[in-house]
Simulated scan of single mutants.
Amino acid sequence: MIEGPYIAEIASLIGDPARANMLSALMDGRALTATELSLIAGVTPQTASSHLGKMQTAGLLSLEKQGRHRYFRLSGQDVADALEALMVLSSQTNPRKRHTGPKDQAMRHARTCYDHLAGCVGVALTDALIERGLIRDQDHGLAITEAGSRYFEQIGIDIPQLKTGKRAVTRPCLDWSERRPHLGGALGAAILDRFLEKGWLNRRKNSRTIQITPPGYQALREEFGIPADLLAANV
């Protein structure tokens, strides 16, 4: 037998529809209870508990306890990256027809990818940061420029602090709906947090989708030159 990574084992865990729905629901970085995840997956609490235990044992999920409550979240960015990559692959290879509704459109337009901005708006923002010389392509990756360091510091993002962490500061993350990279890494997460703090963006309740507020619409147009027609569908 050929020795190698246990791809089949992880794939079988993710491939179960109920477990896939649970993992997808956790892609916005939230922690949810077993009861909430059972409702999302459409299974009984007992079945959900079994699924969650298997995924926790495999390292896909982490468990947090607060009093009598038990909360599950993705164990880290690497799990979110793998799920996003599988979404890209499934959209390219799945021949079944899918009915697309307003919720799907909102997800394609602006959503969270674990802890950073994704979708059409996320990709457009990444393009704008490159065009304005705030980040640059470097060896099939992304890097902050000197001008970028000054700008991000001005809007309240501590770049030296980001560089002290174990996580990559900037990394391209292939967007499953746009098929082009959006900005991930510690900087991508910090930008999303800052835009939420500024009131430029709002999280929609019980969803990964992101709403652009009127102040955000103006700021993203004026500071980053993102076209009005791209933003207008989300205001």
Results as ranks from 00 to 15, higher is better:
3 E>T: 07
8 A>M: 10
8 A>N: 08
13 L>C: 08
17 P>A: 10
23 L>W: 08
31 A>L: 08
32 L>A: 13
38 S>Y: 08
39 L>K: 14
41 A>K: 08
42 G>L: 09
47 T>M: 10
48 A>L: 09
48 A>V: 10
52 L>V: 09
55 M>D: 06
56 Q>E: 15
71 Y>T: 02
73 R>V: 02
76 G>T: 07
79 V>T: 13
89 L>C: 07
92 Q>M: 14
93 T>D: 01
97 K>D: 04
103 K>E: 14
106 A>S: 13
107 M>N: 07
107 M>H: 12
114 Y>I: 03
116 H>N: 10
117 L>G: 01
119 G>W: 04
121 V>I: 15
128 A>I: 05
129 L>P: 04
136 R>W: 00
140 H>G: 11
148 G>L: 03
149 S>K: 13
150 R>Y: 01
156 G>Q: 05
157 I>M: 07
158 D>A: 08
161 Q>E: 14
163 K>Q: 15
166 K>R: 12
166 K>Y: 05
175 D>F: 04
177 S>N: 08
184 G>P: 03
185 G>V: 09
188 G>D: 05
193 D>E: 12
195 F>L: 15
199 G>W: 04
201 L>K: 04
208 R>G: 01
212 I>K: 01
213 T>L: 05
219 A>P: 02
221 R>Y: 10
224 F>Q: 00
228 A>R: 11
